[in-house]
Amino acid sequence: MDWSPPSLNSPRRREQNFALIGAVLSGAVIAFGLLLLLVARVNPEAGSRIREAALDAVAPIWSVVRAPFDGGAALSNDAGDYLGAVAKLRAVTAERDAGRRAVERARALAAENRQLKALMRVVEPRVRLVATARIAGASSGGTIRSAIISAGRAQGVRPGQPVRVAAGLVGRTLDAGDGATRVLLLTDAASRVPVIVERTGQPALAVGNGGPLLEIRDRVGAEVPLRPGDRLVTSGDGGVYGPGIPVATIVRAAEPPQARPAASPQGLGYVSVETPYLPIPAAPPAAAPATAAAPPK
């Protein structure tokens, strides 16, 4: 008999076995990946510990790498300041005079506001500065628009705190590692900021879409048209962002209106993290009366 049945250990058989095992393993990992996505759908917090650890690993690298660039930028800024000192002084003087007049008006308004609030016994939540930190990373991918800042739980930063610069709102904290935190930028598709239009007082939502502009949705009184240049500030609804922080300026009034963020995320250096305006209580009060308003979300 010149034909023999293939042995179990023949190289060809072995190769086939390996190919089979490989195919099964590939199918298994892809199925596992889809399972992980379902887990993320049910519980978005899943795996946040691992993400936070990854932040702590990556942020120091970029803090070191960007140091020489920061030094160079500071040097060129200094040189520019020196050269443009006279023009800048004139501009600043004019700005100061205009500012003084605005401050006088604002003082009168603030005094009036104080009196009215005292009359109405308004209780004002206090917003406290948690930390000021430098941008130490970002993910500018198509899936998520976020920045990494170099302050974390050690500095008191927790998930769900507002992040801002002087010019306006930047976003809110997402995952807080020990020494680094991921900040969800306003332009991320998952970001929703309750705003009011300063000119008309209409409440609305500023929603990111992954591009450079924000979309304005769910505006109350949509029949009143917006104008390019209208300023949007936070309304304080929802309890994360305190009222009155500049968010964006309308650039296109046609429906859906689009707005440019007040704090351009491109040139961010240092940002400050604040406590939430009305923090969500850790546990709902036990003996809450049934008629109480729904807890802030």
């Binding site: 892809i30 990946g33 992980l36 887990v39 993320a40 795996g47 990854a54 993910s139 899936t143």
Partner: peptide
């Protein structure tokens, strides 16, 4: 983990 996307997107 590094980009902050939901676990499983890049993996799959």
């Amino acid at each position: 983990a590094l980009t902050g996307a939901p676990f499983g997107v890049s993996a799959t």
